[in-house]
Design a protein around this nucleic acid. Structure first.
Lengths: 301, 301
DNA sequence: CGCCGAGTTTTGTCCTAGACAAAAAGCACT
DNA sequence: AGTGCTTTTTGTCTAGGACAAAACTCGGCG
């Protein structure tokens, strides 16, 4: 046979759909219907995995599983995003043509060209405006492009990796923060996106805050330990659009319960737009809002 | 009640033990024995989660679950690592005292001091020796320290995050690679450690290779697409010691089957030390070995 | 004394199938 | 167009059973 087949664990890895869900769908909707290997275990042909991947992407855009699974395979690629297109509030000030040009560089896999374009803009505009006018809108556009199927996963990865580099580099050369609020920046397990946190870190560091970057995927109990060990005043988490939003309230409540009450818990990112946080948790819808809160905090102290 | 309790999903998140395993252990060994909430679902008290976390760490050191679960809770912390202490082959040339000093900085949570120490050494020694004599041994020591319980998870995260920055920064200022082998660097899903890949990238870039860094956690089918899109000659993966070694052969075989036969597949990292790779996959036990192979490749072409 | 092969135990993952709660959608009624 | 209620949809949890692969143990042989 020429088409390799995937175990249920492999499909979970590649599509992000849990084993439970895969089995449930098979039972309920009659798709996917994997073959069985010699041990009676599911063996998914590559073609079904591909279709599952597509279904997952459409679900992330607001489509419902029941509808998608009932649809024939060839009807899927034509579907448009379902939830309202994201607001483009910042478009007025942004250099739209320049942004599109940079997206084009990524799309052409021109890593060097993209890096140069970034560096150039950083040098010209300074870090603050670079973050707000370039990186943030770019990230948003890449997210949209991915949702619409115009970007491959690996193109998004390349974009993320290169952009992270420039941001980290820019942060590294800032004068070391020694100022008032000590801010711990991280994300919870299963949330691996860090670009948003880096943007926040850049802006916070510019305001003189002392940032403690812990990377992604910290277990909640470890976030608490780190908070105590570093004497942090604020814990900032980021949730991307890809994070399962149903889990957010539980996670936040749990963490809020673990942390000392005097420590503030701030959250932001595309993933928190559609949820209301539990009490004692502060939610941000934009970078500007976060910076404003930081400045307020500093004035209060 | 003052001790928050964890759902089975939360325990999976925080300990890394799968739901299946948690239920299995309960059935077989009588631990953990969670309480039940109103719906009859498991609710793990914080104390049991803590014990599970400890058990997991000891398992990663080579202890067997059956033994650990039979042991009383207070006997666990005293256990020593089981598998032979890693070889310290490079110790001869390394500046042992300096390394220990840097570890101490991390242990004291002195992020700024650690960054300065790193930058200083990078400037003094140059990138190549910095990677080989400082970053690689440091990473190894942090791994050992973590295994022995001398490092907390969040300390390891801080170390990783700060070290990544310096490395990325150093790579960013290298002359842009345009040379012969195009090398794609990434890791498979569930493998989030990237420090090893960054070290490889630094050394490869110094040899004039053109590196395409895609970050971590690429689905296998996406690795293949990226390879084709970028026209890569070599795909390099890294497996950390934390990666479940039982899954490595399957993953490699799958990927080898997906990739065009002309594309080489190179793997390295602490996770591959104890496994034999399938045919068509090249395994590296040290950074030097990787660089040597790259140079050979260049001579052949 | 060390090494190798066979047998035994340990251990994780997969399987089926049912139950239920939370979220989303539909709908009636201001 | 909004608001509150009912129904449908959907994911996660539960239970125990089966099995294969890995790890350990032990006997025999060089």
């Amino acid at each position: 046979m020429n088409t390799p087949s995937f175990s249920i664990a492999a499909v979970e890895r590649d599509t992000g759909l849990s084993k439970d869900v895969l089995r449930m769908w098979e039972r309920r909707y009659g798709f996917p219907v994997p073959e069985r290997d010699a041990n009676g275990e599911r063996a998914y042909p590559a073609e079904q995995v591909e279709r599952l991947r597509l279904i997952k992407r459409l679900m992330d855009q607001g489509h419902r599983p029941g509808k998608l699974l009932a649809l024939p395979a060839d009807a899927l690629p034509g579907l448009a995003p379902k939830h309202a297109p994201p607001t483009r509030t910042q478009a007025a000030t942004a250099d739209t043509e320049g942004l599109e040009e940079m997206l084009r560089l990524i799309k052409q896999h021109d890593a060097n060209g993209y890096m140069q374009a970034l560096q150039q803009r950083l040098a010209r505009q300074g870090l603050q405006r670079f973050v707000q006018d370039i990186v943030a809108p770019l990230t948003q556009r890449v997210g949209e492009a991915w949702e619409e199927g115009r970007f491959e996963v690996f193109e998004e990865h390349l974009f993320t990796e290169l952009t992270k580099r420039v941001l980290r580099q820019a942060i590294a050369v800032l004068p070391l923060g020694t100022g008032k609020p000590r801010v711990l920046l991280t994300s919870v397990p299963d949330e691996q996106h860090i670009l948003g946190l880096l943007m926040v870190e850049a802006l916070f560091a510019l305001e003189g805050a002392q940032c403690i970057p812990l990377g992604t995927q910290m277990p909640l109990t470890e976030i608490n330990r780190a908070t105590l060990a570093h004497g942090a005043d604020i814990v900032t988490l980021s949730f991307s659009a890809a994070y399962p939003s149903r889990q957010i309230p539980e996670v936040l409540q749990q963490l809020r319960q673990l942390l000392p009450p005097t420590v503030e818990l701030w959250i932001g990112g595309a993933g928190v737009m559609r949820t209301t946080p539990p009490s004692g948790v502060r939610q941000f819808f934009s970078l500007e809002q976060g910076v404003q809160s930081l400045v307020e905090w500093q004035r209060m102290a």
